[in-house]
Design a protein around this nucleic acid. Structure first.
Length: 331
DNA sequence: GCCC
DNA sequence: CAGTACG
DNA sequence: GGGCCGTTACTG
């Protein structure tokens, strides 16, 4: 046979060259695919909690719009179902098994699928854009629900809690149909109540938010290491912000990645060592970047608490050691 | 919106 | 009574 | 096509 004859022959140099080319291209192909998989793996992954939150938001927004209450409840139910799901949502989407889950039908299945595959949901973004942010915040005020908020918005053109507070003080609510003296008073008290707890966040909320942020930063590979610090690291039940500490030789790249995090709503300050942002969830987040050598000392310092630090430094001093966030040395 |  | 908010 | 939480709790 012809090909057997060929095999047994001495091959000319050109043959090996061709073969080498094939091998190289095959290796390149492998490398390319592995890289592709790694990239896909490192891509921002949608968490179940996030999906649930978006579905929940849709429910709220629909109520504010005055949609069929059962429709918004369908979204609430779907949100709860997704959140309590044991299985990996991405796998469910890829295998198109989402629609088999009780509580998720045609419409919501499509929307979740879009969200998981593209990271966005057109319907949600349009819906959110059509309603002033302040109205959603008003839902936190006890005694105020979507119907009353809708009335306040449409009749008085009020879009923020601040404006609402003034309107109450000026007795402008009692004229509205369905409102009265008691209602107005209750709303005003409700506003005070909400104010009292603004800027305070429960550990589970803040922690999941912080984990997502850390995961994102790690994915960008701009820092050698990142760590959640502050009161969150101390597992305080209530925290007022998220502190993240990173070690890197080039801090600017980390800061740049940080402010480009998809969950950032507003950048408060951006510098070489510290950057502060407000997240879309309403939680403040600080990132501090130090060198690799400083990292352990900085981690201790930024984990705190302030009281712990002063006490520890005082004790160190007595032992003849000077310590700060950058390191420690014998005096 | 979802389910029966 | 009806409408609205709540847990 | 029709139901979807409640001997709710409160306000107007």
């Amino acid at each position: 046979m012809f090909h057997i004859e060929i095999r047994q022959k001495n091959r000319p140099l050109v043959f090996y060259k061709e073969r080498l080319y094939l091998i190289l291209s095959f290796l390149f192909f492998l490398w390319y695919n592995v890289l592709k998989i790694l990239c896909a793996k490192g891509k921002y992954k949608m968490h179940k909690k996030e999906i649930a939150n978006i579905l929940n938001d849709i429910g709220l927004l629909l109520e504010l719009k005055g949609e069929n209450p059962f429709k918004s409840r369908a979204y609430y139910n779907a949100a709860r179902t997704i959140e309590l799901l044991d299985e990996d949502i991405e796998i469910l989407v890829k295998e198109d098994r989402l629609k088999d889950i009780k509580g998720i039908g045609e419409a919501i299945n499509k929307k979740i699928t879009e969200l998981v595959l593209t990271g966005k949901m057109k319907y949600y973004e349009d819906l959110k854009a059509s309603i002033p942010e302040g109205l959603v915040e008003m839902l936190k005020i006890p005694g105020l629900g979507p119907k009353k908020i809708k009335t306040i918005y449409e009749k008085l053109n009020i879009t923020t809690i601040r404006e609402l507070e003034y309107a109450c003080i000026e007795n402008r609510l009692i004229d509205l149909a369905g409102f009265g003296e008691k209602t107005q008073k209750k709303i005003l008290e409700g506003i005070q109540f909400v104010k009292q707890f603004s800027g305070q966040h429960l550990y589970p909320e803040a922690y999941t938010e912080a984990l997502k942020l850390k995961e994102y930063l790690d994915m960008t590979k701009t820092a050698l290491v990142t760590k959640i610090a502050g009161s969150l690291r101390r597992k305080k039940e209530i925290v007022k912000d998220i502190d993240i500490l990173a070690a890197a030789s080039d801090s600017s790249k980390v800061m740049e990645a940080f402010v480009n995090y998809p969950g950032v709503k507003e950048v408060i300050a951006k510098g070489d060592t510290k950057t502060s942002v407000i997240l879309k969830s309403g939680i403040n987040a600080d990132l501090r970047v130090v060198t690799e050598k400083e990292f352990p000392y900085a981690l201790h310092h930024f984990t705190g608490s302030k009281e712990h630090n002063t006490a520890m430094r005082h004790r160190a001093k007595q032992m003849g050691i000077k310590m700060n966030e950058y390191g420690r040395q014998k005096m």
